[in-house]
Design a protein around this nucleic acid. Sequence first.
DNA 1: TAAAAACTATACAGAGTTGTCTAGATTATT
DNA 2: AATAATCTAGACAACTCTGTATAGTTTTTA
Lengths: 168, 168
Amino acid sequence: MHLSAQEEYGLRCLLRLALDEGEGVMRVQDIAEAEGLSPEYVSKLMRVLRLGGLVDSTRGACGGYRLSQTADSITLWDAIEVLGGSFFPECFCEAHPGIRRDCARADDCSIRVLWRTVSDLVRGGLSRVSLADLKRGEEAMRTWLTTDVSWVSEALAGSTPRARGEGA
Amino acid sequence: MHLSAQEEYGLRCLLRLALDEGEGVMRVQDIAEAEGLSPEYVSKLMRVLRLGGLVDSTRGACGGYRLSQTADSITLWDAIEVLGGSFFPECFCEAHPGIRRDCARADDCSIRVLWRTVSDLVRGGLSRVSLADLKRGEEAMRTWLTTDVSWVSEALAGSTPRARGEGA
DNA sequence: TAAAAACTATACAGAGTTGTCTAGATTATT
DNA sequence: AATAATCTAGACAACTCTGTATAGTTTTTA
């Protein structure tokens, strides 16, 4: 249940391009310097983003990368889908049958419903935040998320986690 | 952003103990057969759960495992914390500085706020579902989650993901 | 006290992830 | 046409995760 390095660093590179939106192309070296990553690693990440259709590249001298669409039309879910995929992909149960051919819980699995729900909530939430939204600074982002974004404020309201031992 | 095998299979073992609640202890072999896993693997998973304080063990003949508390007082967040840890742990930024000593975004990082928020929402949600809740069947669980659990139904309401290219 | 039942601990190979390295292909400029 | 700038592709070693294997410890029972 961890964010992978590729998801994290790939998103940083994407946000860097968003911050540079409208300024022509950005070279790998520029992105690497801005983000504190090695140019080799940035190259690899940009390839993933390009194959995923999120950025366009121009080769040769004066070449570089730019977003394939405007920053406000690329959602964080688009980015995560390209960089790492779903929290609970369709094939998960099929891929985790244990030592049997079919999962012991194939017929009736409450866990599956739970993860599917969490996955849908995360996907739904990330689909409503764009790269343009991320371009605000940290403090503005915090304010926006906790006060202006209804799906967050509603979910956070009354979300005191149940203490262990408190009962159902 | 994937669920790990240890999280998935460990939770299945824990749920198996919950289903057996009140029936004395359950042997590794029983759990393994019920879940379709190898006894060796179940042993390893049970060790993690025991070190995490979620289950108690009895050694020797007639020994086995049981939940350390009632099923309704162990939340899914308790389980995930022991089996895999947070989606976005406190140390994440410190552990991903790139090639610099300090992260290039240490001072102002809108991404950090975003992941922290998602992480808090997942933790809050999972803290309000217990092993006892999981003991219902799949269909009952689905109904319960989508209609009775306010934080889910509120979050799902109006959660049509924004299509790519639709704009902000 | 010996044997069987059952958990405990650690080592290990295979697979996936991470980040680097090297060589190649394409384009602008002179 | 030659050179420099820049992206492209794939190999690779170190690390982590996954699941198995093996040997050890504790408890019950006869």
